[in-house]
């Protein structure tokens, strides 16, 4: 019985890398909202809910979609035993600022429930759960930098209970700057499944996180 990382996706600097290889690239001058729309269109999916999300959730959904692409992760694992363990540095501050602006102006006072609901970082976990019908464990950690040790150690702890697989990573948006890194990990009874799979441990996660050679 082994714990493996079966796929990973990384989005930053207007590029998308899947399993270490750059798959999509937009002009460096593209803003985050433009980039997210462009990326969504390039994927040929129809998910009207996407347009209602804040940037953090859009980024998280797209990165997860890339990580899942060409895998049998959702079919291989019971959906109620897949955990979602995410993290970032800025929590939901990007959207917090929008809600705060809406309430600062007392003469034009219309706080939006759609904005307010996104003033929690774990809403991205909810969006991933809804899109892929995943109902397992949830946790959203907020740390200064991408903390592979925390994610691996907590996921290992989950694997010692009912959890059999996990969507893990980092989804950060702050003042237009952003980065997303998602890896899929699962417990495998049959270790011969695919020799390309990486073992789940802190060093491997750091290696995969630093693997892509960004061309921008």
């Amino acid at each position: 019985m082994k714990k493996h990382i079966i796929s990973y996706a990384h989005i930053k600097q207007n590029q998308v890398s899947v399993n270490g290889t750059i798959m999509f690239s937009a002009a460096p001058s593209t803003t985050l909202p433009e980039f997210l729309t462009e990326l969504y269109k390039s994927m040929g999916i129809s998910y009207p809910k996407f347009h209602k999300m804040d940037a953090l959730c859009k980024l998280g959904i797209l990165c997860t979609e890339f990580a899942l692409k060409d895998t049998t992760f959702l079919a291989d694992n019971p959906l109620n035993k897949i955990a979602v363990v995410l993290s970032n540095a800025s929590s939901s501050l990007e959207t917090d600022r929008r809600h705060q602006q809406a309430i600062d102006d007392k003469s034009n006072y219309f706080p939006s429930p759609t904005v307010f609901v996104y003033t929690l970082p774990n809403i991205i976990i909810g969006e991933i759960a809804i899109k892929y019908k995943i109902t397992g464990e949830n946790a959203f950690f907020v740390s200064e930098k991408f903390d592979a040790g925390l994610l691996v150690s907590y996921t290992e702890a989950l694997f010692s209970e009912q959890t059999q697989a996990a969507v893990c990573g980092w989804i950060e948006v702050d003042n237009g700057a952003y980065e997303a890194f998602i890896f899929l990990t699962e417990i495998q009874e049959n270790t011969n499944k695919n020799t390309n799979f990486k073992p789940l441990n802190q060093l491997t996660v750091i290696e995969l996180y630093n693997q892509t050679i960004w061309t921008h």
Binding site: P48, F110, P111, S112, P113, T114, V117
Partner: peptide, 17 residues
């Protein structure tokens, strides 16, 4: 249109605004 419960609240804001 397939709107949901948050959309309903948002329509309330729309009418007021």
């Amino acid at each position: 249109l397939g709107l949901d419960s948050i959309d309903a609240l948002e329509l309330i804001v729309l009418l007021e605004k």
